[in-house]
Amino acid sequence: MIAFLGFITLLLLGFFVGRYLESRHFSSIRQREAELVVLPNTSSRYQLIPMQQIERSELVTGSVVISIDYFKRIVAGLRSLIGGPVQSYETLLDRARREAILRMKESCPGACQIINVRVETSSIYNAAGNGIGSVELLAYGTAIYGQVQATNGL
């Protein structure tokens, strides 16, 4: 009985607190993405913006480790019985990737563009060894500093 009550408490805590923290994180991500839209990044190896003069270029990285909440973990476990899309992991991976890319952008103030962006994902298994406990994301690219060529409104 006590174990069952504990399970329900964890489930409710995970649902309410987890949902609150996630929505707060998403609104922070959206706000920072809007601020950093001035620093374009591309997964192409070619330069996105023609440069008049390149001062220097360097490797920039951003990484984050994010854990899923208890409620979503249980839901995902149930979901694996019947199959289909697992939405709880979709949001986890989505916010982790966006956060990693944001951190990469924040690590190079003054850069004109970031090219050749790559994202590396790996999961950390929980102590029992089953299911994804949390994911670690590493985003990296080449930041280019210098003077942007004047373009006609492009």
């Binding site: 995970g14 607190v17 923290l21 990484s63 480790v65 854990s67 909440d69 208890y70 956060e99 929980n126």
Partner: peptide, 23 residues
């Protein structure tokens, strides 16, 4: 805080630092 984070979800800061250091 990792134990709590497994309930609430969210960033595991200690682990992010470890990842940064090893990188």
């Amino acid at each position: 805080m990792a134990g709590l984070k497994n309930v609430f979800g969210g960033e595991l800061r200690g682990y992010t630092e470890l990842l940064n250091e090893s990188r």
